[in-house]
Design a protein around this nucleic acid. Sequence first.
DNA 1: AATTAAAACTAACAAGCGTTAGTTTTAATA
DNA 2: TATTAAAACTAACGCTTGTTAGTTTTAATT
Lengths: 207, 207
Amino acid sequence: MLQILVSSIIISITNLQLLKYETRKDEIIQTSAILFQKKGYSAVTMRDIAKAMGIKAASLYNHIKSKQEILSEIIISLAEQFTEQMKIIKNSNDSSIDKLRQIVDLHVNITTNNQFGMASLNNDWMHLENELEYYLNLRTNYENDFRGIIEEGIQGNELINGNPEVMLFSILSTLRSLYIWLPKKEDLDIEKFINELSLVLINGINQ
Amino acid sequence: MLQILVSSIIISITNLQLLKYETRKDEIIQTSAILFQKKGYSAVTMRDIAKAMGIKAASLYNHIKSKQEILSEIIISLAEQFTEQMKIIKNSNDSSIDKLRQIVDLHVNITTNNQFGMASLNNDWMHLENELEYYLNLRTNYENDFRGIIEEGIQGNELINGNPEVMLFSILSTLRSLYIWLPKKEDLDIEKFINELSLVLINGINQ
DNA sequence: AATTAAAACTAACAAGCGTTAGTTTTAATA
DNA sequence: TATTAAAACTAACGCTTGTTAGTTTTAATT
């Protein structure tokens, strides 16, 4: 009877872990992302990652091919999410202002769900090797679509007749920095925040 | 006669170098800043820095104490510039909107004059050791002054009655990202750009 | 109870790291 | 021309790096 109880506890612990991480590889990637955020990819060693998981560095290689692969998994999956979602927003029939709001929404949501990985995406992409070119393509596509939406808004008189490059830079810089700022705000009402941020980015702060 | 000519050429070369770098230490710091921007502090080795200068790694130590010292010199001098100038802006009698324009001006100018070091300031400050606390103090002071100017503007009905934290985050993120963006734009009219950027940040992009 | 596959381990590798000690070269000054 | 100080050099140090090979442990399945 006791043995059955103990066994069921172990099963439920196993299930709990399966709920949090799909695979052990996934756990390595997420643990690494936390460490990469704190010190950057280059300053984190395989022994650091292993220690954070309570195992030895060599054991990591039962699940991953290389340190590089961990970085790629973090960055590429995020970059693909952004580029895919941007395509959907771009191809919708909404107004330009509405599309911009959706882009803010996209960034806030991906950042909220991938708090740690966003630091690698922003700061460690240059340490990609095989996938560097692919990443740069994704990024360029994303930026071009973003720029297109702004230019459309200017032509349709939704946006002021300003420098689209300055607008793109200004909004995108803010959205790319969300990963630094969002974790500092606990108990944040995400919906309310998206509205506040959209308002500031689109309408400015002038009374 | 020939000898005198050669000697004068050498003197003029020496003077040229003195115009570009005050000391050899200064040259090491500026060269390092370029490399740190490309790959980050941790991924740059002393041998990389030496190679970029055409000397051996050990020779660097005739001029600097450690790799750490190079990073400190880059980051602390920039952080001090920002904090000092912010104090002056804060204590002026200008309107809040005017103060915000001066902050934009400050960031654009420091970034233009220290293109490479800004990457270290933004991404490698966590690798400071002895000076980490001092740096964090400078940054906190800067952000507090910035926040104060925004709050003043709200109270004085110059700015909309929005969330000051969101405003601070939005503007500061953009200004901190200038180092990524400014070098891409050649033949940039700095004054014009400061005006365009201030306009977008303060009045938004809505028609 | 025996088998199996997954996942941990120990031990070690070659290469690269920041840095030091001691020496030689360079170039200006007396 | 001899002296001096600055700034380069060679050689090496102890340590850390990512990674591999081979072995043992763990835990589920037959």
